[in-house]
């Protein structure tokens, strides 16, 4: 029998017996970041492709969610901080080796840019809107004129943001569950898929909806492929990563992951979308909500489970 104990009675809050320093704030922050990145990606992509007319929700209306999601996400991050009133320290330095640092900076860039984007469409939504100050009106004209360039910037930033939500975790080599390069692309795709779901849900045009639904189907396919790949990678890796994978294959996260994330959050909405494309009447809110819910659950589970995994020595 092997026995390992702390003879000095160590029992530090949030660290023993299992690390649990990140609670709900970080997964929520990752979810909102991914959602915002997803919506912003499609908005800028279809602007660059010149599809404003065909995809009005994608390009204009869904984007109204983006600043809101980002601000909420930043607020969640702020709540997670234990030394909150030193928050500004984040913006006194740029540290490229720290995902947390460049994440904070990307958010700092993308939030005002997305707000500018939204402001340039506000008059289309409320024709009576008045900016009151001449300078703001001029500014609005400027944005509208350079919309394509703004779209390019936001396209790149949204991809970085989407990947960042995964890299934030995968950079921690101390947590075997997170320490895999596939997490960046996986979180990006999942973010894009939640973004597509949100657009789908908001859109009133049938053409736009079925188009986004097709895009979403492809994304779900890729996501499932990545998930399989994730576990194949773990099973072929070191003992600690096999242990990590076992949390999902018989371990304590098996049901929550496979039922809520994979079946309810990916497979089931995919089936609904296929049925809908085949002409069955299915309220779009159902698959969209399921996808959003699955995305949120996915982040919660990854953050919780990852903290439990550790090196053995």
């Amino acid at each position: 029998m092997k026995e390992e104990i702390f003879v000095s009675g160590r029992n530090i809050p949030n660290i023993d017996p299992f690390l649990h320093i990140w609670h709900w704030q970080i997964p929520l922050y990752l979810f909102l970041g991914g959602l915002a990145a997803g919506i912003m990606f499609f908005a800028s992509l279809y602007t660059i492709l010149g599809k404003e007319k065909e995809m009005p929700t994608t390009v204009k209306w869904a984007v109204f969610l983006v600043p809101a999601a980002l601000v909420l996400g930043l607020f969640a991050l702020f709540l997670d901080l234990k030394h909150q009133w030193y928050f500004w320290r984040l913006y006194l330095t740029v540290r490229f080796e720290s995902p947390m640092s460049w994440g904070a900076w990307v958010l700092m860039l993308i939030t005002p840019l997305s707000m500018m984007w939204v402001s340039s469409y506000i008059k289309e939504l409320y024709p009576k809107w008045d900016w009151k100050f001449e300078i703001l009106n001029k500014f609005e004209k400027l944005i509208i004129e350079y919309r394509k360039s703004l779209a390019w910037a936001l396209l790149i930033l949204s991809v970085i943001l989407g990947i960042y939500t995964g890299i934030l975790l995968s950079a921690f080599n101390a947590r075997p569950l997170w320490n895999t390069a596939i997490l960046g692309p996986l979180f990006l795709v999942s973010g894009l898929s939640t973004g597509a779901a949100a657009i789908m849900w908001m859109s009133k045009s049938h053409i736009e909806r079925s188009f986004m639904s097709k895009v979403d189907l492809i994304l779900i396919g890729i996501e499932l492929f990545f998930i399989i790949h994730l576990f194949m990678g773990f099973m072929a890796s070191t003992a600690v990563q096999i242990n990590a994978a076992e949390l999902f294959m018989g371990g304590q996260f098996t049901v929550s992951f496979w039922v809520f994330v994979v079946i309810l959050g990916l497979v089931f909405p995919a089936i609904l979308e296929i049925l809908e494309l085949r002409g069955y009447k299915i309220p779009v809110a159902i698959p969209a909500l399921l996808i959003l819910f699955g995305g949120l659950m996915f982040r919660f589970i990854m953050v919780e489970a990852g903290q439990i995994t550790r090196y053995l020595y």
Partner: peptide, 27 residues
Amino acid sequence: ANECIGCGACIESCPYDARYSHPDGYV
């Protein structure tokens, strides 16, 4: 201490669980 924002990233990153969050907020 007065540069730390208490984000907890370093706690997550340490394979030895050698850090903790001080009740005053910093690590």
